[in-house]
Design a protein around this nucleic acid. Structure first.
Lengths: 212, 212
DNA sequence: TGCGGACCATGACAGCTGTCATGGGCGGGG
DNA sequence: CCCCGCCCATGACAGCTGTCATGGTCCGCA
């Protein structure tokens, strides 16, 4: 019997998913959570074998009253911070962004699935993960590979990452000890390579592809 | 027996929702669709009493090969275009944006629910809608009222709407027979009223609140 | 009648953005 | 060895954006 916990802020999806999982004779849902802080609590309380974790979730407030992690991937990171192997983690997401996949796998999570995958595939993933295997949604894995390595140079990446944190040109220049002109130039180059218009789109495209 | 059709691109949510609805003895799911074009087809094929419709859906390609409606609300509009009262329509959405609510209600749909509402509320809504009542998610309705009427003046709205269509300053000026300076000025005023930085955010805030 | 407050319109101004031309440093291939 | 290509750095330039000060019209109110 595989003991499961489900964390997702969309109540309808969560309830539906739980109903579906109950239909499987070897699965047992032992906990549910609607935000990131609650997800941590549920794991602490019920010690499930496998945790299904949505990426987009409100932080919520933990038992100590402080705000919880900002998203599901951050929850995974915290659960793995102490090196524990339990619970196995499968991250679910609506948007099949390669960046999510990369971030997720870096945390040490075992699985990554998009929500428009059929349920059988998810159930299958749960069983495989329980056996210690790693599972990645095939469609997304293919897309992730097709995205390929970053076309950005080192400095371009550095500058773009700073821009992603909301810093303006002058701030970036000060932080990286560059002229403002140089900063704009790296951004311009990145814009060209990414085939977008404007630094905002460049930042988005780069993060979407996990190139940050 | 209420005959239902469910249209949502997230396979997991759709399957889960169907599983939940089957638990209700007076509900019967007669059709499913994963994109907007398929939703129209399913309605034509099965003539359900009530249609559950996600807002965010890929257009898909219809039986005639042409692309379908851009989102769920557009599907609702088409179904109501000929004045027919069937099927009753409940629009589901992940994001409780007042703009969605407004657009939805203008199409003549009967219900509007956010996906983090509990399932009982959705089931309840289905039964009420079947009886000819209109149902709006209480939380969202409150929020929608609290948002209040638009603080924007007529010209500001006009200019912002044009900007939302992707037009640049000069294009807007030409379209509305204004000086470019005037256009920028209206936008600036709107930015001030909406308490945001930059025209992009202004457009987004205005659409989110249904002020376009 | 006069006055104040909205909405609208316009041009001037400063700030920021992206692109360009230019040049220095470094490593591989002829 | 020299040369070419790539990355990095810089300042100059044009274009666009948001704000401001100014002035016009219209309407309600004393």
């Amino acid at each position: 019997m595989i003991r499961l916990a489900v964390a997702d802020d969309q109540s309808i999806l969560r309830s539906g998913l739980v109903a579906l999982l109950r239909l499987e004779t070897d699965l047992e849902v032992v906990g549910e959570a609607a935000d990131a802080a609650a997800a941590l609590d549920v794991v602490a309380d019920t010690d499930p074998d496998v945790l299904l974790l949505d990426v987009q979730m409100p932080p919520g407030t933990g038992a100590d009253g402080r705000p919880g992690p900002q998203d599901g991937i951050e929850v995974a990171r915290r659960l793995r911070a102490d090196g524990a192997a339990r619970p196995r983690i499968i991250v679910l997401t609506t948007f099949g962004r390669a960046g999510y996949l990369r971030r997720t796998m870096e945390t040490g999570a075992e699985g990554f699935m998009v929500k428009d995958a059929p349920v059988e595939r998810l159930v299958d993933a749960i069983r495989r993960v329980q056996q210690g295997l790693r599972v990645v949604d095939p469609d997304l894995a293919a897309q992730s590979l097709s995205v390929g390595p970053s076309p950005l140079t080192a400095k371009e990446t550095e500058v773009l990452r700073a821009a992603a944190d909301g810093a303006g040109t002058s701030q970036i220049a000060a932080t990286l000890f560059l002229s403002e002109g140089t900063v704009r130039n790296h951004i311009s180059s990145a814009i060209g390579k990414l085939g977008v218009a404007g630094r905002a789109e460049a930042v988005r495209r780069a993060t979407d592809n996990g190139w940050l």
